[in-house]
């Protein structure tokens, strides 16, 4: 059984209510910067998109990547370099990050899909660590310092992204775009085949699907979307450093997804918001953040493997059953 066998309940009832919920959520996101710090919100949006991209792989193909930081942090470097050194327009710089992450995803995915389960996790971890070592050594990443002072610039040469609100709404638009793409992938025929592979890989093979190609395809898409999150983050926060490519970052995105609910569409968003918020809260307390993350990991794995959203969906399903 794969990790992500709990998937979003697909009853039509939920669909209409989820439309309403979606509208409320978007309205809340539009109003949010008037109530919270835009920087905090943008940080949440970037990580939420990152977690959604990661979830595409574990939740819908059942592959646990322990190396997604390479795509997130790699794209951040590419975007930062293009915007700062080459003076690219921010959107073009972000797109370069996405393309770079996709190419890396193709290379890493090509190697990693040769093994399954636990080996897949170890291989992706090792390859991303290799990338982190490369980032430490090559000149363009500026080693321990990273690329600092990346200009936010003018979107399409018009919108001044140094305006916090403008930056926020652009980030929100990118997030919603990424989320929409993931939603489309998951509900497409391609997505259905991915789910079939997750449920029973042998059966998918015997049905004639070239499982490896589907896995690789999903891996590249997930990497590219993680790159979208990483590139955006580089523009928003105006730097790209080794923190974004190291294994702790890969661990954090796993935690966000696990906490929110693997294989649920909004779980990663909930998880990312909670983890970021908790990190901010505990950092103020001088409580070691790594320990906090470790504790949440242990609690999640032992007590609620479905994650917060997954458990809620399960509860609703049971109620429906009980009512019927």
């Amino acid at each position: 059984m794969a990790v992500g066998t709990q998937y979003i309940a697909e009853q039509p009832k939920l669909r209409t209510s989820s439309k309403v919920l979606g509208a409320i959520a978007i309205a809340a996101l539009l109003a949010a910067p008037f109530f919270f710090y835009p920087v905090l919100l943008m940080s949440i949006l970037c990580f939420a998109l990152f977690a959604c991209a990661f979830n595409l792989l574990i939740g819908y193909v059942g592959l646990l990547s322990f190396g997604h930081a390479a795509f997130f942090g790699g794209a951040a470097y590419f975007t930062a370099h293009a915007a700062k050194v080459w003076g690219w327009e921010p959107l073009a710089a972000i797109l370069l990050g996405v393309a770079g992450a996709a190419v890396m995803g193709l290379l890493m995915g090509f190697l990693a899909i040769r093994r399954q389960g636990i080996y897949f996790a170890m291989i992706t971890l090792a390859l991303s660590q290799m990338f982190a070592f490369i980032c430490l050594q090559v000149p363009f990443t500026h080693g321990e310092d990273g690329i600092q002072g990346v200009p936010r610039g003018y979107l399409l040469g018009i919108l001044d992204l140094n305006e916090p609100l403008t930056m926020y709404y652009v980030t929100l638009a990118i997030f919603l775009f990424g989320f929409f793409i993931i939603w489309r992938i998951v509900n497409s025929p391609f997505g259905n085949i991915l789910k079939a592979i997750r449920e029973n890989e042998r059966r998918a093979v015997s049905l004639g699907y070239r499982v490896d190609r589907y896995k690789l395809g999903a891996f590249v898409m997930s990497a590219a979307l993680a790159g979208l999150a990483g590139g955006t983050k580089a523009i928003v926060f105006q730097f790209a450093t080794l923190t974004d490519v190291n294994w702790q970052m890969s661990g954090e995105v796993i935690l966000m997804t696990l906490l929110g609910g693997i294989g649920t569409l909004i779980g990663p968003v909930v998880g990312a918001s909670l983890v970021i918020a908790l990190q901010k809260y505990f950092a103020a307390w001088n409580f070691p953040v790594t320990v906090l993350i470790g504790i949440i990991f242990v609690i999640c794995v032992l007590l609620f493997r479905r994650g917060i959203v997954g458990e809620i969906l399960e509860l609703m399903k049971r109620r429906q059953k009980g009512a019927a």
């Binding site: 990790v3 646990l64 996790a121 070691p288 320990v291 470790g294 504790i295 990991f297 242990v298 032992l302």
Partner: peptide, 17 residues
């Protein structure tokens, strides 16, 4: 089996942190 990996990862973070 992946949950075993995730649990021990969490424990590693706690010890290290």
């Amino acid at each position: 089996h992946l949950y075993g990996l995730l649990l021990t990862f969490g424990l590693a973070l706690i010890l290290e942190g």
